[in-house]
């Protein structure tokens, strides 16, 4: 409890001070809202427009979470396939890299043309962004099983699936979870970027569209309010994935285990 307070106090104090300074400066220099709204104005907008903005947040969050799920299943699945066939890994991995290094914002318009359902198009864009870290880290994890342990498996004549199930998959778990945490943030970024690219075609429902819409109207308090909700969503996704990671690893992995006194 006390340790938690010690941990939370410095960022809380700093954040509060920054907000006060911000509000004070906006007041003092009479900065109009359409240039820089103060935190009070933003909070008021959040309160007033909360219903609409929150509904939009749910739309964007649904795309991001679905993309994360697709990235996790696709990335981990492909990594397991790679672990079964070096040939397949060598053949496919470069293309996964190509997919990763091509900016999604540049592919998005094409996907929006080819895929009729906008929702599906958004999902595809966000999945493409989120997929690579899961694939890369899980592949690394599956290949990082200790040589002595592989010898042990060979000694007891473990079958291929047994080596995968009892050795490679658990050994890959910490790597996979690290990849999933990165993918969580990227899925949200991908969802927002794709929504921007879709513009009005997205049906004016997601949070990114709310930001665009507000910018057309020079409604800066609303832009900031939407931005605040987006960061909050990102933090929540990260925290959730960190919790899952802790639950799965804390009993045995050094990264998550408390050090013995």
């Amino acid at each position: 409890m006390k340790a938690g307070l010690r941990l939370a106090a410095p960022p809380a104090i700093l954040g509060l001070a920054a907000l006060l300074l911000w509000q004070g400066a906006v007041r003092l220099f009479r900065v109009p809202d359409y240039i820089l709204p103060g935190p009070v104005a933003i909070a008021a907008t959040l309160w007033r427009d909360g219903g609409t903005l929150f509904a939009s947040l749910l739309v964007t969050l649904a795309v991001a979470l679905a993309a994360l799920a697709a990235a996790i299943i696709g990335g981990a699945g492909l990594a397991i396939l790679f672990a079964q066939s070096k040939w397949l890994e060598r053949a496919l991995f470069p293309y996964a890299v190509v997919l990763q290094v091509t900016p999604v914002i540049a592919i998005a318009p094409l996907i929006l043309i080819y895929v009729r359902s906008t929702e599906a198009a958004l999902l595809i864009c966000a999945s493409i962004v989120a997929f690579f870290p899961v694939l890369a880290s899980t592949t690394l994890g599956l290949n990082s099983a200790d040589h002595n342990m592989l010898d042990l498996m060979a000694l007891y004549r473990a079958r291929r699936w047994q080596v995968l199930w009892y050795l490679r998959l658990p050994a890959a778990l910490p790597h996979f979870l690290a990849g999933a945490r990165i993918a969580g943030g990227l899925a949200l970024i991908g969802a927002v970027v794709a929504e921007f690219a879709a513009g009005t075609a997205a049906g004016g429902s997601g949070l990114a569209w709310r930001i665009l819409e507000s910018s057309y109207r020079l409604d800066l308090p609303r832009m900031y309010a939407a931005l605040f909700l987006l960061s909050l969503a990102g933090v929540v996704i990260f925290a959730m994935l960190s919790l899952v990671s802790w639950l799965l690893l804390h009993r045995w992995h050094d990264s998550a285990a408390r050090r013995e006194p």
Binding site: N148, D151, L152, M153, L155, Y156, A158, P170
Partner: peptide, 25 residues
């Protein structure tokens, strides 16, 4: 076979590690 390192699977308990050769069989 006893290796130079204990070569225990860190995600299994001591009992789980010892039981592994039997489970594999």
């Amino acid at each position: 076979f006893v290796f130079q390192e204990p070569t225990l699977l860190p995600w299994r308990t001591a009992r789980g590690n010892v039981a592994l050769p039997l489970i594999l069989a």
